[in-house]
Each structure stands twice: as structure tokens, then as C-alpha cells.
């Protein structure tokens, strides 16, 4: 049923020409897929998708629309028919391909045979934390995760270098955000934002026992700060979270992660082998996972907030000009 709603939303996005509505539909699409992930037991994924797909991503798109215009002028490109034919052809081929797939949810599917049972059976002995997703993310595949954090950091750098404005211009801007006049929004958000921040910290440090971890906490934390800066204006938000501090924090999180790896190497074990951090392997894993999850959380939150600041600063400048 949720999947059916997803299809409806996707088609609506394809047909709508008002880009504002498209972005709103994309937000709904994100929320629907998050609910779908809950139904399929992927609670950690659902967390992230809800914060990203229904929160940060539509906001960034709205900021872009503010700069590029709300309506699509031309609806169909020259390749419209060719594109349609191509899409139908590829879709049909993929449909035929699914005939060889194992049935949905089957226990003996190939995906369920290789490393997954080992993770489920052995991870508590080896890592000593109940959330298997966290132990795979932070320990078994720690090297991958380091790479992914580096990708996020690099993308953040890219956005900043594309959208940065020189300091001189920056001083000119000012003014109170228009949202500030909405009393209800202001009061409700004042109650909500501290709760969101505390929830983010809970998700950060409880990631080993319940669903959560650095990635989820990072995006929730960022969403709270972004909400704050929308309602109270960019200038007020910048006084709360200093931008140059954020830039340092973004790099620091990644460094923290990498340095855990270096420390384990210096202790004579492999890169990111947390058993080297303490006498007892379980304790070592605990320390390692907490530290690297903290690194992930700091980098993700800092990069997301920085990206949003870069976008909204652009918008302020355009609005003033």
C-alpha cells in the first residue's frame, strides 16, 4: 500500500510543472519511503531518511528554487518520445530480470546466505553491542564508513567553494527573517528545538543499543539548527553556531575518525581494529565505536549546517539586490 502511494507521488512529480509543488511532493515521497523502511525492519535507515528525505533535502531544493525561479518554462525536451521509449524498454527488460529473483522475504535467498548470518550470530560475541547495524557500520565495515564520511566532507567543501561569498559582501546583509512574525511558529519551535537537540544527542550515544548512531544524530542535529535559522534568521543562528567553528568541526570529525585508526595501528593491530584500544576486546570495541560515531556525527552535522548556510546566504544576497 505504501509502495502504491510512492508510485502515485512519483508520477505526480513527473507531471507537475510548478516546481514548488514538486519539491513539496518530494518531501512527501521522502516521508513515505521512511515509513516503508520502518515496515521492512530497517529502523536505522528510516531515521535517516525521515530527517534527510523529508527535512533537509526539500529545504535545500526550496533555497535553490528561490534563486532559479519557480516554474518550468518548457515541459518537454526534443528527446521526449525517444526518452519515453527508452524508459519503457529498460523497464521491461528489468521486469523480465526480476523473474529470476527470489521471492520477497524468503529466508533462503542468496542475500541472506553469505556474511549476514555471521554478523547476526557472532557480532554480540565479537563486538558486544546489540545493534547489529551499528556494529557492522562502525566495526566490521569501519573502513568503508571512513570513506563515506570523507565523501560527505568533500561534497561540503565543494558546495562551500561553489557558493562562498567574500567577507566584505557578507557584512552588508541584515534584517529579520520574515518567519519571525508568525507567533505560533516561533513559540512552537522554541519548544521543539531543544527537544530535537536532546533527541539528537540521545540518538548519537544510544546507537549501540537502539536504532541510531552518528549519521542519524548528525542529520537530526542539523535539522534542528536549520529550523532555528529559518525561523529566527540567518544572523541570529550564526551568533549561536559560529561558521568558522563549524568549518573546523567538519574537518575535526573526520580527523577524529582517522586518528582512531592510526592509534590502533600504533598499538600494533590493523587500521581501525578497536580490540587494540583496551585489554578486553569488548571494551575496546565500545570505546572505538563511541569515538568514531562521535566523529561521524560531528562531521555530518557540521557539513549539513554549513551547506544550508551557504545556500541561504546566496538567497539573502539575491533578495537584497
Amino acid at each position: 500500500m505504501l509502495l502504491f502511494l510512492l508510485i502515485v507521488t512519483a508520477f505526480a512529480i513527473a507531471y507537475t510543472k510548478d516546481l514548488f509543488a514538486v519539491v513539496m511532493l518530494a518531501g512527501i515521497y521522502g516521508l513515505l519511503s521512511a515509513s516503508f523502511f520502518v515496515a521492512l525492519d530497517a529502523v536505522d535507515v528510516a531515521f535517516t531518511e525521515a530527517a534527510v528525505g523529508a527535512g533537509i533535502s526539500p529545504l535545500l531544493m526550496l533555497a535553490t528554487l528561490g534563486l532559479t525561479g519557480r516554474f518550468q518554462t518548457q515541459t518537454k525536451s526534443r528527446f521526449y518520445l525517444l526518452g519515453f521509449a527508452l524508459v519503457v524498454l529498460v523497464g521491461a527488460l528489468l521486469m523480465i530480470g526480476t523473474a529470476d529473483m527470489p521471492a520477497f522475504g524468503s529466508v533462503d535467498a542468496p542475500a541472506q546466505q553469505h556474511v549476514a548470518p555471521r554478523y547476526i550470530e557472532k557480532s554480540y560475541e565479537e563486538i558486544a553491542i546489540p545493534n547489529v547495524v551499528t556494529s557492522v557500520l562502525a566495526s566490521y565495515r569501519g573502513f568503508d564508513t571512513l570513506g563515506e564520511v570523507a565523501v560527505i566532507f568533500t561534497a561540503g567543501l565543494g558546495v562551500l567553494s561553489l557558493l562562498s561569498i567574500s567577507r566584505k559582501e557578507e557584512e552588508k546583509e541584515g534584517g529579520v527573517a520574515s518567519m519571525y512574525e508568525h507567533t505560533i511558529l516561533r513559540i512552537v519551535s522554541k519548544i521543539l528545538i531543544p527537544a530535537m537537540l536532546i533527541f539528537a544527542l540521545y540518538v548519537q550515544f544510544h546507537g549501540e543499543y537502539g536504532p541510531g548512531g552518528g549519521f542519524q544524530a548528525g542529520v537530526i542535529f542539523a535539522a534542528a539548527i536549520i529550523l532555528y535559522s529559518i525561523l529566527f534568521g540567518l544572523d541570529v543562528a550564526k551568533r549561536v553556531v559560529n561558521e568558522s567553528v563549524l568549518q573546523i568541526l567538519a574537518a575535526l570529525g573526520l580527523l577524529l575518525y582517522g586518528s582512531v585508526g592510526v592509534v590502533t595501528m600504533l598499538s600494533g593491530k590493523n587500521f581501525l581494529d578497536y580490540n587494540a584500544l583496551a585489554e578486553d576486546p569488548g571494551t575496546g570495541q565500545h570505546i572505538g565505536i563511541i569515538v568514531i560515531e562521535l566523529g561521524v556525527g560531528i562531521t555530518v552535522a557540521a557539513v549539513m549546517i554549513l551547506i544550508f548556510f551557504a545556500f541561504s546566504r546566496r538567497m539573502d544576497r539575491e533578495g537584497g539586490a
Binding site: V52, G53, D144, V219
Partner: peptide
């Protein structure tokens, strides 16, 4: 997928 979502929003 968890990491892919966050990388996805960055890209």
C-alpha cells in the same frame, strides 16, 4: 543504505 542516504544528500 544508511550511509548512502547521507552521502546522497551531500551530493
Amino acid at each position: 543504505i544508511l550511509t548512502a542516504i547521507v552521502v546522497g544528500i551531500a551530493t
